[in-house]
Write a protein that binds this DNA or RNA. Sequence first.
DNA 1: CTGTTAGCGCTTTCAC
DNA 2: GTGAAAGCGCTAACAG
Lengths: 377, 377
Amino acid sequence: MSKRRTDGRPTIADVAARAGVGSITVSRALRDASLVSDVLREKIDAAVRELGYVPNLSARALASTRSDVVGVLVPSLTQHIFADVLRGIYDGIGKTRLNIQVGNTRYDLDEEDRLLAELLRYKPAGLIVSGIDQSPAGRAMLERANCPVIQIMDLSDDPVNKIIGFSHHDAAKAMTQHLIESGYRRIGFLSGWMNSRSKGRLSGYVEALEEAGLFDPALTNAAGDLGALAARGSWDKHQYSTPVMGRELLADLWRRAPDMDAVFCNNDVLALGALFECHARGISVPGDFGIAGFNDEDFMEAASPALSSVRTHRWKVGHDAVVALRRQLDGEPDGERVVDVGFDIVKRASTDRLGLLSGMGEADIPQPAAVVGGGTV
Amino acid sequence: MSKRRTDGRPTIADVAARAGVGSITVSRALRDASLVSDVLREKIDAAVRELGYVPNLSARALASTRSDVVGVLVPSLTQHIFADVLRGIYDGIGKTRLNIQVGNTRYDLDEEDRLLAELLRYKPAGLIVSGIDQSPAGRAMLERANCPVIQIMDLSDDPVNKIIGFSHHDAAKAMTQHLIESGYRRIGFLSGWMNSRSKGRLSGYVEALEEAGLFDPALTNAAGDLGALAARGSWDKHQYSTPVMGRELLADLWRRAPDMDAVFCNNDVLALGALFECHARGISVPGDFGIAGFNDEDFMEAASPALSSVRTHRWKVGHDAVVALRRQLDGEPDGERVVDVGFDIVKRASTDRLGLLSGMGEADIPQPAAVVGGGTV
DNA sequence: CTGTTAGCGCTTTCAC
DNA sequence: GTGAAAGCGCTAACAG
């Protein structure tokens, strides 16, 4: 009776025996075919195929003290914005040996710390985390992680290592200025639950209005009746922006500021709700009321009227984060510590009070848009 | 000069030495505190804390020939439907020791096989895969995976092991019947690229219309002008359903069947586009034209008029898949091999041609809905 | 370019 | 309840 605890599947030693070589040669052939002579490589490939050999990644990770896991931490899975980032990350990983492990922090710092600790047990090859507001413990873990760490979707003077994103403040300020230039004067800010990036957008909105002498705190519900809404059970932090909420929040805002003539919505989903609320009330957009969103999701272009938005480059952020990670893993120079991918102000019919967009009718598909670059890129 | 290749971080042996016990005792204390006496457990806990010890999961996986990785394969990250499934999966995993590794197959069987092979190298604790149309190679891998395998989001007589989902055919048939009962006679089927689940929906639509003697192939674009659209570069398989596409496809369909008086859309995003197309053309919904979608995403309720849809239980599917997985891992009985979570027909204003919904006005938020259960549940 | 040897850090086995 | 020894499958180190 042998004491072997194996599960019977072929190991590298079996392959080596079958190919008539040492097991280290098999190991090398598998990792980098060019390390082995053609003759042996073919023998090894044949043996691998015949045996149906599958390398055991745990053993590899243990022996080499590094895994192929890239840990990714996002605050939400269902918000399109992070889904796009994830797609960029997966596209950046492509068919490399790297594997993604996603953690969903739900905008909860304790959960983020827990997931981070969990990821660290894998000795990950790299880490990609959303935002800059980690807890002190989280920040410390990132700094001691012993692998490349890329922060994304924001900017900071003091990244752990490298950060790729854009300025939410600047983007919101630019869109607010567009609303002002379009002739709106009582511009509201529509938002559900605020995270740190939302707060950056709010500050950009406030700054633009203050510079124009148009700021009025009554026009924002950002710190407003959310408690009451939450108590009604109609939403929670995890799905803090639904079109239904957009409708309710706009109605609330109108109650407080009946002369409001436009809203800048913290995200596109709220903007969609705002548009439907206007439809339902028979309020004409953009004539009576202007609507702008944030992120430029694909439905903005299709809406009737088409909705203006701030286009953010989520896919690129995710993709470039992986490229930077791989570059660092390969020991190549990784460029700037802070990378600003910028944003675009996409001007569509919903804010075209002055009729500046070409004279194309409402039925045109898709609606024409004027896109203006912003940020630093 | 030692030959040690360690990276300097404390190991279980360091903890054992510090606590004055054997390393196996530490191992046991870490896995199940009840295996060790109180005195030793406290000493060990203290040593762990003082050393900042973090267990190495690769070593654990290697020694125990099983990892804590649950592999999840979905065809898309950006479609809300799978984002909801993933959220259910993450919620089901909760704070267990299990870790999720998501692979994005992009509706590509070769990619699915590649990702499956990649996952298998981790000797995963379990596997959750979308759908039933694996390649023969993929199916074989699942069958030899040596861990619980849960298929999701469809039904099948012949699951690898267990399947949790609902009948796309039955759901589409029920919604089509609702359209017929609402007085529509020339009901179109609006769809972009078709996957196997879309095909199930199409067949349900066809069956309902045939039974009513109303079927007309001119009313579906499912196998229609998609090639032409694709050639125009306006969409690809990865984002095969945008509201812009909904608008274009509806326009195409109308060109072919000008007397069409309703559409059943393969998903909600297309339905949203269809609604905007109607808005733009000044066509009144539901009076002149009925619109129904599939999935019941949150914007359907907020639209003006509110859009009818088939509510599917994505979160539950993901959640229950994990529960089933954990049950199997714990050796508990796992119940039926085929679990039908059903669906609901959500009747809203967009199909209410007969004015059956209570006399509430358009401005009401949210719009009233009549929900009718379906499926087996 | 190839092989031998000695680990990687944890858990199984078996004994006490 | 606890421990010593052996082994999981692979790769770093060094030699040839």
